[in-house]
């Protein structure tokens, strides 16, 4: 089992590859790996309750910790209460902690 952290910056509404990135993250989690997904930049856009992008729900998995970057949310005036309940907010120190603990950290 490995531990992965994905920095998910791509916006699925404009970048079709994002869907397959979600699928891969889902497959890694289903195979028993622990995965953290940090939504940053426009990558936070599908994280709101009002957003409709069905493939994003693949990230709602027991082996996946899903968090959104506070700064990116502030820029877009998205409050924590507007997020899907499973999604917590974070600073980027989560990425550094993952790197320093030897996780495989991947920028998407």
């Amino acid at each position: 089992m490995s531990e992965f952290l994905f920095i998910q910056s791509r916006d699925p509404f404009t970048d079709a590859l994002t869907k397959s990135q979600y699928e891969l993250i889902h497959h890694l989690a289903t195979a028993g790996n622990r995965v953290t997904v940090v939504l940053v930049q426009n990558g936070v856009m599908p994280a709101t309750k009002s957003s409709i992008f069905t493939p994003f729900t693949k990230l709602l998995h027991e082996n996946i910790t899903l968090v959104a970057d506070k700064f990116s949310l502030q820029q877009r005036e998205i409050d924590a209460e507007q997020l899907i309940p499973e999604i917590l907010t974070t600073d980027l120190d989560i990425v550094i902690k993952a790197l320093l603990s030897g996780q495989k950290v991947i920028w998407n």
């Binding site: 910056s9 426009n42 980027l92 120190d93 990425v95 550094i96 790197l99």
Partner: peptide, 19 residues
């Protein structure tokens, strides 16, 4: 690119973590 800002924030966070 917005990535440039995120990149610098990551460098800052790395120093915060004493790396």
């Amino acid at each position: 690119s917005e990535r440039t800002v995120t990149f610098f924030r990551l460098l800052d966070a790395a120093l915060d973590a004493n790396s």
